[in-house]
């Protein structure tokens, strides 16, 4: 594998909290991927217990699957006294468990509260962006498991392209009136169903919630 040249070609994950249903499938898939057996039914009997590297956090009415951002200038690498955290050639921030002494410096340095100390392992666990899978040309486990595509994987350029396209469509959606903008009139009016999302359910409790 050659060293990637520009950071725009760096593989990354895009999180869309609007689409997250809070089902935590990503958490399960992550734990399974980082288990020894790599199967659900095997993983649940393993010791130490396989642990997820990411966590779905509730903020207001949104669920945010928080994972390692694999920062360009990662504070965790800077503070690690044993040099256990390194950057891979893809730009992923990887922790070498053999070198980790569990000092928790990275935990304190991370602006996203990502690395997690696991007493069962006696070391810190963090997201490796499923580097082995990515090198095989597959998506990370959490992305593959997400049923609503709230997590997207690709190079920065690909993801930005997709977002630009979505935003552009949103922008012109009000103009989509037959005979005004389009050269050819739209014959079939697109049936637009009102979608309900968990956010709607959560917001319904806005005035009576205590939590």
């Amino acid at each position: 594998m050659s060293l990637l040249e520009t950071s725009l070609e760096r593989p990354t994950i895009y999180i869309d909290p609007k689409k997250c249903m809070g089902c935590r499938s990503c958490e399960i898939a992550c734990a399974v991927e980082h288990s020894m057996s790599k199967t659900l039914f095997g993983a649940i009997f393993e010791k130490p217990t396989p642990k997820p590297r990411l966590k779905v956090v509730v903020a207001d009415f949104f669920n945010v699957p928080l994972r390692c951002q694999h920062c360009e200038d990662a504070p965790c690498i800077k503070v690690c006294p044993t040099g256990a955290i390194k950057k891979s050639e893809e730009g992923f921030v990887i922790l070498n468990a053999n070198k980790c002494i569990g000092c928790l410096m990275c935990v304190m340095a991370c602006p996203f509260g990502h690395p997690k100390y696991e007493p069962e392992y006696k070391v810190v666990l963090k997201c490796d962006s499923c580097i082995e899978r990515v090198r095989e040309g597959r998506e990370p486990a959490c992305v593959e498991a997400c049923p609503t595509k709230a997590l997207k994987f690709g190079t920065l350029e690909e993801i930005l392209d997709e977002i630009r396209k979505e935003r552009a469509e949103e922008l012109i959606s009000s103009l989509k009136v037959p005979g005004i903008v389009y050269m050819e009139p739209v014959i079939e009016e697109k049936k637009k169903e009102e979608k309900v999302s968990p956010v709607d359910v959560y917001t319904a409790y806005l005035e009576v919630k205590w939590y």
Partner: peptide
């Protein structure tokens, strides 16, 4: 239990 699964809620 938070977040509770959206598929179940719906």
């Amino acid at each position: 239990q938070q977040p509770q699964c959206g598929f179940g809620l719906l």
